[in-house]
């Protein structure tokens, strides 16, 4: 049956996802600049794992492989997951995480468009719960102690777990700035003292703040090309700023400035790339606002009062659960039923 409309805008899922992948590149570039090319290794590993798993699952589910494998969604999941875990983590960590994300949290729920949870975040959650130790060894940026690893050393550590002689793991890795902040606060230090530590830069973690800025740059590109709507990132960052600002104003010695929260951890990539996953976020405008605000509050609570180093993943997953409910209760009024005089 051939029926109207007979024309359509030249857009496709594959193109949309490709643009999102492109928008990640500034952040990745800063990543490589500050932390070395190890991240490229994990991105590649994740990509290959994602594509293989995707193809396998499509085959098992008796679905056509070519249109789905070329839709770039598996790649996006892979990249988001790779960017969320330490680049120096052993190779099998990213492989297991990505395979789980694609096979279980995407395909077992019905594949593209049917998964209730963000697959990358499911992958992250599984890894941090199952393998907490390797998930905390983050590379120290080049400029902090000058003892950085070259590419060969990073490569050999990822695949064999061997470090060049004379170097210990603690010497080349560290906890994330958010984690460090939390630990030091527990030790009784004040925020001002902690911020003087060499791993911190002007806004947040040294190096990582620039990576976050890179993601924000890519995010703005997505915003202006209307790939994503403003509701999610703006409300998310705004609420995070407001909550963090409130605590900071009340007790600046114990609660760090809101900008620190913006540029630490996965806040930026979360705001522009993770929350905005269309499949797992609400469809109504009001719903998006509720979703983003909820995610921001949860992120802050988990970061400041919870036990995990970052809160974006769990905040996202917790809000993902609420999406169907949010959608039902935020249905907009339709044409002609909005009441008079609007």
């Amino acid at each position: 049956m051939f029926s109207s409309p007979f024309i359509s805008q030249p857009s496709s899922v594959s193109q949309i996802m490709l643009r999102v992948l492109l928008a990640l590149i500034p952040g990745i570039a800063f990543y490589v600049w500050y932390f070395g090319p190890a991240i490229l290794v994990s991105l590649t590993l994740a990509s290959i794992t994602a594509l293989v798993t995707e193809a396998l699952m499509l085959k098992l589910r008796n679905r056509p492989i070519k249109p789905f494998i070329s839709d770039n969604t598996a790649l996006l999941t892979a990249w988001l997951l790779a960017l969320s875990i330490p680049p120096l983590a052993p190779w099998w960590l990213i492989v297991v995480g990505t395979a789980f994300a694609i096979a279980v949290s995407k395909h077992l729920y019905g594949g593209l468009g049917s998964n209730p949870f963000n697959p990358a975040m499911i992958g992250y959650a599984v890894l941090i719960i199952s393998f907490p130790a390797p998930m905390t060894h983050w590379i120290t940026p080049h400029s902090v102690d000058g003892m950085s690893l070259n590419f060969a050393a990073q490569w050999s550590y990822i695949f064999s777990g061997m470090l060049p002689s004379g170097l210990t793991l603690d010497a080349v890795t560290m906890a994330t700035p958010l984690d460090t902040l939390k630990t030091q606060l527990h030790l009784g230090q004040s925020v001002a003292d902690i911020r003087d530590m060499p791993i911190f830069g002007r806004l947040a973690g040294h190096g990582s703040e620039m990576v976050a800025a890179g993601f924000a740059l890519g995010g703005l590109y997505l915003l202006f090309t209307r790939i994503i709507s403003w509701h999610l990132p703006v409300v998310y960052l705004g609420t995070l700023f407001a909550v963090a600002g409130l605590f900071h104003v009340l007790d600046p010695a114990h609660y760090v400035a809101p900008l620190f929260h913006w540029f630490s951890g996965a806040a930026m990539i979360g705001a522009f790339f993770i929350l905005t996953d269309p499949v797992t976020s609400p469809t109504t405008q009001k719903g998006k606002i509720i979703f983003a605000a909820g995610a921001a509050v949860l992120t802050y609570l988990i970061r400041v009062f919870g036990g995990f180093p970052d809160g974006v993943a769990f905040a996202t997953l917790l809000m993902n659960i609420c999406v169907p409910l949010i959608d039902i209760y935020t249905q907009p009024k339709v044409f002609g039923k909005k009441g008079a005089g609007k």
């Binding site: 949309i16 594949g111 593209l112 269309p278 499949v279 469809t283 249905q331 907009p332 339709v334 044409f335």
Partner: peptide
């Protein structure tokens, strides 16, 4: 035809404010 990814481009353009 690919599955719906709930990108709501359709809702954005619907002149009857439908979903």
């Amino acid at each position: 035809v690919m599955p719906c990814i709930r990108c709501i481009r359709c809702a954005d353009v619907c002149p009857a404010d439908l979903q």
